[in-house]
Protein backbone atom coordinates (compact mmCIF):
# COMPACT_ATOMS: atom_id res chain seq x y z
CA UNK A 1 0.00 0.00 0.00
CA UNK A 2 1.43 3.36 -0.97
CA UNK A 3 0.41 6.48 0.87
CA UNK A 4 -0.97 9.06 -1.54
CA UNK A 5 -2.12 12.59 -1.16
CA UNK A 6 -2.77 15.33 -3.66
CA UNK A 7 -1.46 18.82 -4.19
CA UNK A 8 -3.60 21.88 -4.73
CA UNK A 9 -3.45 21.17 -8.46
CA UNK A 10 -4.74 17.68 -7.98
CA UNK A 11 -1.64 15.80 -9.11
CA UNK A 12 -0.84 12.77 -6.97
CA UNK A 13 2.19 13.14 -4.69
CA UNK A 14 3.98 10.07 -3.42
CA UNK A 15 5.31 10.14 0.09
CA UNK A 16 8.83 8.77 0.39
CA UNK A 17 9.42 6.27 3.15
CA UNK A 18 5.89 6.24 4.47
CA UNK A 19 4.89 3.35 2.28
CA UNK A 20 5.30 -0.31 2.95
CA UNK A 21 7.40 -1.06 -0.08
CA UNK A 22 11.11 -0.68 -0.69
CA UNK A 23 11.88 2.70 -2.23
CA UNK A 24 13.91 2.60 -5.43
CA UNK A 25 15.26 5.07 -7.94
CA UNK A 26 17.31 4.42 -11.05
CA UNK A 27 18.51 8.04 -11.21
CA UNK A 28 21.47 7.98 -8.77
CA UNK A 29 22.83 4.78 -10.31
CA UNK A 30 22.64 6.25 -13.82
CA UNK A 31 24.30 9.53 -12.85
CA UNK A 32 27.14 7.83 -10.95
CA UNK A 33 28.10 5.59 -13.81
CA UNK A 34 27.63 8.44 -16.25
CA UNK A 35 30.11 10.47 -14.20
CA UNK A 36 32.37 7.43 -13.94
CA UNK A 37 32.56 7.10 -17.73
CA UNK A 38 32.63 10.80 -18.49
CA UNK A 39 35.31 11.95 -16.05
CA UNK A 40 37.86 9.33 -14.86
CA UNK A 41 37.68 7.03 -17.87
CA UNK A 42 37.47 9.67 -20.59
CA UNK A 43 40.26 11.71 -19.01
CA UNK A 44 42.47 8.65 -18.66
CA UNK A 45 41.83 7.48 -22.18
CA UNK A 46 42.76 10.88 -23.56
CA UNK A 47 45.59 12.09 -21.33
CA UNK A 48 47.09 8.81 -20.10
CA UNK A 49 46.57 6.37 -22.94
CA UNK A 50 46.06 8.79 -25.87
CA UNK A 51 43.36 6.56 -27.28
CA UNK A 52 40.98 8.71 -29.32
CA UNK A 53 38.42 5.99 -30.08
CA UNK A 54 37.95 4.89 -26.48
CA UNK A 55 37.86 8.52 -25.38
CA UNK A 56 34.92 9.10 -27.71
CA UNK A 57 33.24 5.83 -26.72
CA UNK A 58 33.44 6.50 -23.00
CA UNK A 59 32.28 10.08 -23.37
CA UNK A 60 29.49 8.81 -25.58
CA UNK A 61 28.37 6.40 -22.86
CA UNK A 62 28.82 8.83 -20.00
CA UNK A 63 27.07 11.94 -21.21
CA UNK A 64 23.69 10.36 -22.14
CA UNK A 65 23.69 8.40 -18.87
CA UNK A 66 24.15 11.61 -16.90
CA UNK A 67 21.47 13.47 -18.85
CA UNK A 68 19.03 10.58 -18.47
CA UNK A 69 19.78 10.23 -14.74
CA UNK A 70 19.48 13.92 -14.02
CA UNK A 71 16.21 14.19 -15.93
CA UNK A 72 14.80 11.22 -14.05
CA UNK A 73 16.04 12.62 -10.74
CA UNK A 74 14.43 16.01 -11.36
CA UNK A 75 11.19 14.34 -12.40
CA UNK A 76 11.12 12.33 -9.17
CA UNK A 77 12.02 15.39 -7.16
CA UNK A 78 9.03 17.22 -8.64
CA UNK A 79 6.53 14.40 -8.07
CA UNK A 80 7.60 12.83 -4.76
CA UNK A 81 7.31 14.41 -1.36
CA UNK A 82 10.35 14.08 0.90
CA UNK A 83 10.11 12.82 4.48
CA UNK A 84 10.78 16.30 5.78
CA UNK A 85 10.20 19.17 3.35
CA UNK A 86 12.75 21.87 2.63
CA UNK A 87 15.84 20.13 4.04
CA UNK A 88 17.76 20.64 0.79
CA UNK A 89 17.80 24.33 1.70
CA UNK A 90 20.03 23.31 4.61
CA UNK A 91 21.99 20.71 2.67
CA UNK A 92 23.16 23.21 0.07
CA UNK A 93 24.89 25.57 2.55
CA UNK A 94 26.58 22.54 4.11
CA UNK A 95 27.80 21.53 0.65
CA UNK A 96 29.09 25.06 0.18
CA UNK A 97 31.23 24.68 3.30
CA UNK A 98 33.17 21.94 1.54
CA UNK A 99 33.34 24.03 -1.64
CA UNK A 100 34.86 26.86 0.35
CA UNK A 101 37.62 24.54 1.47
CA UNK A 102 38.42 23.50 -2.11
CA UNK A 103 38.78 27.14 -3.11
CA UNK A 104 40.76 27.83 0.05
CA UNK A 105 43.30 25.14 -0.78
CA UNK A 106 43.82 26.57 -4.25
CA UNK A 107 44.15 30.08 -2.82
CA UNK A 108 46.52 28.82 -0.13
CA UNK A 109 48.60 27.26 -2.89
CA UNK A 110 48.60 30.59 -4.70
CA UNK A 111 49.68 32.52 -1.61
CA UNK A 112 52.38 29.99 -0.79
CA UNK A 113 53.76 30.05 -4.32
CA UNK A 114 53.57 33.82 -4.70
CA UNK A 115 54.92 34.80 -1.29
CA UNK A 116 57.91 32.49 -1.58
CA UNK A 117 59.27 33.98 -4.84
CA UNK A 118 61.31 37.14 -5.26
CA UNK A 119 59.67 38.56 -8.37
CA UNK A 120 56.05 38.41 -9.39
CA UNK A 121 54.62 37.89 -11.94
CA UNK A 122 57.11 35.34 -13.26
CA UNK A 123 58.65 35.52 -16.73
CA UNK A 124 56.48 34.99 -19.84
CA UNK A 125 53.38 36.47 -18.21
CA UNK A 126 51.59 38.77 -20.66
CA UNK A 127 49.77 41.94 -19.64
CA UNK A 128 46.59 40.84 -17.83
CA UNK A 129 43.31 42.55 -18.79
CA UNK A 130 41.83 45.05 -16.35
CA UNK A 131 38.52 46.08 -17.87
CA UNK A 132 37.32 42.59 -18.74
CA UNK A 133 37.34 41.23 -15.16
CA UNK A 134 35.52 44.36 -14.00
CA UNK A 135 32.89 43.80 -16.67
CA UNK A 136 32.62 40.12 -15.66
CA UNK A 137 32.16 41.18 -12.03
CA UNK A 138 29.34 43.44 -13.15
CA UNK A 139 27.73 40.55 -15.04
CA UNK A 140 27.83 38.19 -12.09
CA UNK A 141 26.63 40.67 -9.50
CA UNK A 142 23.75 41.68 -11.74
CA UNK A 143 22.85 38.04 -12.27
CA UNK A 144 22.74 37.55 -8.50
CA UNK A 145 20.21 40.38 -8.34
CA UNK A 146 18.13 39.00 -11.19
CA UNK A 147 17.94 35.53 -9.68
CA UNK A 148 16.83 37.13 -6.44
CA UNK A 149 14.06 38.94 -8.32
CA UNK A 150 13.08 35.63 -9.94
CA UNK A 151 12.77 34.08 -6.49
CA UNK A 152 10.63 36.99 -5.29
CA UNK A 153 8.32 36.54 -8.29
CA UNK A 154 7.98 32.84 -7.55
CA UNK A 155 7.22 33.64 -3.92
CA UNK A 156 4.32 35.82 -5.12
CA UNK A 157 3.11 33.04 -7.41
CA UNK A 158 3.97 34.85 -10.63
CA UNK A 159 5.32 31.92 -12.61
CA UNK A 160 5.64 33.79 -15.92
CA UNK A 161 7.76 36.53 -14.37
CA UNK A 162 9.79 33.91 -12.54
CA UNK A 163 10.65 32.22 -15.82
CA UNK A 164 11.47 35.56 -17.45
CA UNK A 165 13.91 36.61 -14.71
CA UNK A 166 15.46 33.17 -14.64
CA UNK A 167 16.09 33.38 -18.38
CA UNK A 168 17.70 36.78 -17.86
CA UNK A 169 19.94 35.28 -15.17
CA UNK A 170 20.98 32.47 -17.47
CA UNK A 171 21.82 35.00 -20.18
CA UNK A 172 24.06 36.93 -17.78
CA UNK A 173 25.77 33.69 -16.81
CA UNK A 174 26.31 32.77 -20.45
CA UNK A 175 27.74 36.23 -21.11
CA UNK A 176 30.16 35.64 -18.23
CA UNK A 177 31.29 32.32 -19.67
CA UNK A 178 31.71 33.91 -23.09
CA UNK A 179 34.05 36.49 -21.53
CA UNK A 180 36.02 33.65 -19.93
CA UNK A 181 36.28 31.87 -23.27
CA UNK A 182 37.36 35.07 -25.01
CA UNK A 183 39.99 35.76 -22.38
CA UNK A 184 41.36 32.20 -22.43
CA UNK A 185 41.55 32.31 -26.19
CA UNK A 186 43.44 35.59 -26.05
CA UNK A 187 45.91 34.30 -23.43
CA UNK A 188 46.52 30.99 -25.16
CA UNK A 189 47.31 32.90 -28.36
CA UNK A 190 50.00 34.76 -26.44
CA UNK A 191 51.49 31.39 -25.40
CA UNK A 192 50.26 31.71 -21.86
CA UNK A 193 49.42 28.04 -21.21
CA UNK A 194 48.69 26.27 -17.91
CA UNK A 195 52.23 24.89 -18.08
CA UNK A 196 53.93 28.22 -18.88
CA UNK A 197 54.89 29.34 -15.39
CA UNK A 198 53.83 29.48 -11.73
CA UNK A 199 51.26 32.20 -12.35
CA UNK A 200 49.67 30.50 -15.36
CA UNK A 201 48.98 27.29 -13.45
CA UNK A 202 47.38 29.27 -10.62
CA UNK A 203 45.48 31.50 -13.02
CA UNK A 204 43.99 28.71 -15.10
CA UNK A 205 43.22 26.41 -12.18
CA UNK A 206 41.45 29.03 -10.06
CA UNK A 207 39.57 30.83 -12.83
CA UNK A 208 38.86 27.52 -14.55
CA UNK A 209 37.57 25.98 -11.38
CA UNK A 210 35.38 29.02 -10.81
CA UNK A 211 34.12 28.92 -14.39
CA UNK A 212 33.18 25.27 -13.93
CA UNK A 213 31.08 26.41 -10.97
CA UNK A 214 29.40 29.02 -13.12
CA UNK A 215 28.70 26.26 -15.64
CA UNK A 216 27.22 24.04 -12.93
CA UNK A 217 25.11 26.90 -11.61
CA UNK A 218 23.79 27.53 -15.11
CA UNK A 219 23.03 23.83 -15.52
CA UNK A 220 21.02 23.96 -12.29
CA UNK A 221 19.07 26.96 -13.59
CA UNK A 222 18.35 25.22 -16.88
CA UNK A 223 17.26 22.13 -14.95
CA UNK A 224 14.84 24.39 -13.04
CA UNK A 225 13.75 26.29 -16.14
CA UNK A 226 12.82 23.36 -18.40
CA UNK A 227 10.19 21.83 -16.07
CA UNK A 228 9.09 25.37 -15.13
CA UNK A 229 8.06 25.90 -18.75
CA UNK A 230 5.50 23.17 -18.13
CA UNK A 231 4.49 24.79 -14.86
CA UNK A 232 6.34 22.39 -12.55
CA UNK A 233 8.46 24.13 -9.93
CA UNK A 234 9.95 22.96 -6.65
CA UNK A 235 10.65 25.98 -4.46
CA UNK A 236 13.35 24.23 -2.43
CA UNK A 237 15.19 23.39 -5.63
CA UNK A 238 15.00 27.03 -6.72
CA UNK A 239 16.28 28.11 -3.32
CA UNK A 240 19.24 25.73 -3.63
CA UNK A 241 20.08 26.95 -7.11
CA UNK A 242 19.97 30.53 -5.96
CA UNK A 243 22.12 29.91 -2.85
CA UNK A 244 24.66 28.19 -5.05
CA UNK A 245 24.64 31.06 -7.53
CA UNK A 246 25.20 33.64 -4.80
CA UNK A 247 28.12 31.55 -3.56
CA UNK A 248 29.65 31.45 -7.05
CA UNK A 249 29.22 35.21 -7.13
CA UNK A 250 30.97 35.76 -3.79
CA UNK A 251 33.86 33.50 -4.74
CA UNK A 252 34.35 35.56 -7.90
CA UNK A 253 34.99 38.65 -5.75
CA UNK A 254 37.89 36.79 -4.17
CA UNK A 255 39.11 35.49 -7.52
CA UNK A 256 39.09 38.96 -9.06
CA UNK A 257 40.76 40.66 -6.11
CA UNK A 258 43.45 38.00 -5.74
CA UNK A 259 44.20 37.12 -9.35
CA UNK A 260 43.68 40.34 -11.30
CA UNK A 261 44.10 43.20 -8.84
CA UNK A 262 46.91 42.15 -6.53
Amino acid sequence: MTAHSTTAHGTPIEHQGHGHHWETSIAPFAVVFGVFFLLPLTFSMHFVYHNTILTAVFAGIGLPLILFGVAKWIDEGLTQKPLVAGLAGVGMPIFIVSEIFIFLSFFATYWMVRLSTYSWPPEHTPEMPVLLPLFMTFLLITSSVTVHIAEEKLEHGDLAAFRKWLVITVLFGLAFLSCTTFEYHHLLEHDFLPSTNAFSMIFFSITGFHASHVFLGLSIFIAILLPALGGRVNKTFVLCGSIYWHFVDVVWIFVVSQIYFW
Binding site: H18, E23, A27, V31, F33, V35, P82, V84, L87, G91
Partner: peptide, 15 residues
Amino acid sequence: KDVAFPRINAFSVWL
Protein backbone atom coordinates in the same frame (compact mmCIF):
# COMPACT_ATOMS: atom_id res chain seq x y z
CA LYS B 1 12.32 6.69 8.73
CA ASP B 2 15.30 7.26 6.44
CA VAL B 3 18.07 9.76 5.87
CA ALA B 4 17.29 13.30 4.73
CA PHE B 5 18.21 12.71 1.08
CA PRO B 6 17.69 9.03 0.20
CA ARG B 7 18.59 9.42 -3.47
CA ILE B 8 21.82 11.26 -2.64
CA ASN B 9 22.53 8.38 -0.29
CA ALA B 10 22.19 5.94 -3.18
CA PHE B 11 24.40 8.25 -5.22
CA SER B 12 27.08 8.01 -2.50
CA VAL B 13 27.10 4.23 -2.36
CA TRP B 14 27.43 3.85 -6.13
CA LEU B 15 30.25 6.41 -6.22
